[in-house]
């Protein structure tokens, strides 16, 4: 089988070795999100230090796209100032829903997820972790 245009190597690499992966008990999860249409499930914990995202841990029971997006997100936002993360997160989600392109250099590995836009039913898979992060940041008062 030819390498699928959606399942690029970079996505499969994140799927295979998800960054920030952790086992999070239900009771200790800051955010516990389920996609009711497919059963994808993300638990997320985050902590700030001096206005920066000092810790992001994710427990993801999801498809390759969902897991890879979560992993790329951790890589992209860890150690970054909250003031930068929130607008980027919004722009990324907007782009995935058909909004304006985010410049390639800002996306990094996330650029590989742009192919998901050809499959409208799966855009949610690619944005779920970002919603979870957004919820966590609001809880942290960021």
């Amino acid at each position: 089988m030819q390498l699928d245009d959606l399942y690029q190597e970079i996505i499969l690499d994140h799927y295979k070795h998800p960054r920030g992966a952790a086992v999070i008990a239900d009771a200790s999860a800051m955010v516990d999100e389920e996609n009711p249409t497919c059963g994808d499930h993300i638990k997320l914990n985050a902590a700030l230090d001096g206005g920066r995202l000092a810790r992001v841990e994710i427990d993801c029971q999801g498809c390759a796209i969902c897991t890879a997006s979560a992993s790329m997100m951790v890589e992209r936002v860890l150690g970054r100032p909250v003031g930068e993360v929130r607008p980027f997160s919004r722009a990324f989600v907007e782009m995935m829903r058909g909004g304006p392109e985010v410049p390639e250099e800002e996306l990094g590995d996330l650029a590989a997820l742009r192919g998901v836009r050809q499959y409208p039913l799966r855009v949610k898979c690619a944005t779920m972790a970002w919603h979870a992060l957004d919820t966590a940041l609001r809880q942290l008062g960021a």
Partner: peptide
Amino acid sequence: IHPHDVAHFVDR
């Protein structure tokens, strides 16, 4: 393999 990925591939 997550069912979503399975369904995506067979849909292709």
